[in-house]
Simulated scan of single mutants.
Amino acid sequence: MPHATPARASGRPRWWTELPLIAVVYGLYSAGRLLARGNISTAVDHGLEILRLEKTLHLNIEHPLNRLLTTHSSVGIPADFAYASLHYLVTPALLLWVYRRRTAAYRAARTWLLTSTLIGLVGFTLMPTCPPRLLDAAHGFVDTMAQYSSYGWWGTEASAPRGLGGMTNQYAAMPSLHVGWALWCGVLLWRYGRHPLLRALGVLYPLTIVFVVMGTANHYFLDAVAGAAVMGAGALLTRPVMRAAASVSARLRALVSRRYPSGAGVPATPSPIVSGGCETSAGERIPGRRTPSAHSSDAPRASGKPGRTGAGDSAPAAAR
């Protein structure tokens, strides 16, 4: 996992700035998936090309895994629940855990996740891909999510709740961010988990998700490989992205300080004395200030010594 730069490692980011940032990036990701639907026939062609390549390389392990899940409901139903939920529960939970327990590592972990997610969005846009479950039945795949839909909240359109299938892009299969995010979680658990059980989960969780996405016929093996590659690219870009973000932030602060310097709104030159140029009424005195209108009898009492007066000594005796 990439390390935080020393300049940014100190101090926990404010949660009220982190939540909007993560929400905006996730919103862009979700909206981008919908906008990147592409042509269905093109997506099917991409899916078939991946399947042919896997058969050539003897990597098409999706078929036996899919048969295992469709034949044994005791395996297929938990796998469907895992596909429909863990992606959206474990990832934010670990992000919060790092935020609370590993402050120095949080910025790098968050930047790595968000950068990789945006790279994945580029992949969805450039290569819309039909998942195995949506291929013609002649290719031998069964949609386990549809087969066991009566056990869960999803319908026949991936893991989306029933009636909300239009809010997801079922052809955003390449790369698999289910696998990518699971790998991110695994690295954090392995690196920062103190208990051996947490480190073991760091290895088992990504492997489990790879099994799940292929067994449910939601992804090809090469989708999983691409998901891992996207996370690798995000890890390499984390430090440059953090430096660029710090530079932009510094420039914005400098711009704001020039526009609104310290003490903005206060006149640069001292304000004139309130009574300057004005005459006071008879008997009026400004606190802490001797004026020519003061009576001579006040001066000795103010100074405490007879015969010593203030600024009014130069005035004629009659005026005093």
Rank of each mutant, 00 (worst) to 15 (best):
M1Y: 06
P2S: 02
H3V: 03
R8P: 09
W15T: 07
W16A: 04
A23I: 04
G27D: 02
S30V: 14
T42Q: 06
V44C: 00
G47F: 02
E49C: 09
I50W: 12
N60M: 12
N60K: 11
H63R: 14
N66S: 13
I77V: 07
Y83N: 14
T91K: 01
P92E: 06
L94G: 10
L95G: 09
L95T: 12
R101L: 06
R107C: 02
S116I: 06
T117N: 07
V122K: 09
T125Y: 15
A138S: 13
A146T: 13
S150M: 10
Y151F: 12
W153D: 07
W154Y: 04
S159D: 12
S159H: 13
P161N: 01
G163C: 07
L164K: 10
A172T: 03
V203F: 13
Y205R: 02
G215S: 06
T216F: 00
F221R: 07
D223G: 03
A228I: 14
G234Y: 06
V241H: 01
R243G: 09
R243P: 08
A246P: 00
A250P: 00
L255M: 04
R258C: 03
P270W: 11
S275H: 00
S275N: 01
G276A: 15
P287D: 08
R289Y: 11
T291P: 09
H295V: 06
P306M: 14
G310M: 01
P316H: 13
A319W: 06
